[in-house]
């Protein structure tokens, strides 16, 4: 059940993101990129397998059973990915606003298509 919900969430987020990226308005593109990066972040997280109530940090000392713990690597990766995508999205936002100011339109090509 949990797997189904997670994969549906990733799928819906990714599909909406891709659709928005292909739209002609810069704001739609940036929202699309955000949604797509959420989908990717969830996907990375799910690559450590889904476990319930298992901590990712092992206690000090002694031989332990690895199956009782969650994989800590994807959790570390997803943190890095979140930080980086947040920063680049902020940068993209600046360029988007600069483009709006310079061209007076929010079309990705800087000009409206001729009717």
């Amino acid at each position: 059940m949990m797997e189904l919900v997670l994969s549906l969430a990733i799928g819906v987020l990714a599909a909406s993101g891709i659709w928005l990226i292909l739209r002609p308005r810069t704001f739609q593109v940036i929202v699309g990129l955000c949604l797509l990066s959420y989908a990717v972040n969830l996907f990375i997280f799910s690559m450590g397998r889904l476990t319930l109530g298992a901590p990712p940090i092992m206690p000090r000392g002694g031989p332990i059973d690895p199956t009782a713990f969650a994989d800590p690597v994807p959790q570390a990766l997803v943190l890095t990915a979140i930080v980086i995508s947040f920063a680049t999205t902020a940068l993209f936002l600046v360029v988007l606003i600069a483009s709006r100011g310079l061209t007076g339109t929010d079309h990705v090509d800087g000009q409206e298509r001729e009717p």
Binding site: I21, T26, V29, L33, L36, S85, T88, T89, L91, F92, V95, L96, A98, S99, L102, T103, V108, D109, G110
Partner: peptide
């Protein structure tokens, strides 16, 4: 440059 940059950033983010 801003227009080219917009496309460049969008492509590379994807």
């Amino acid at each position: 440059r801003v227009r080219a940059g917009l496309h460049y950033i969008a492509v590379n983010l994807t």
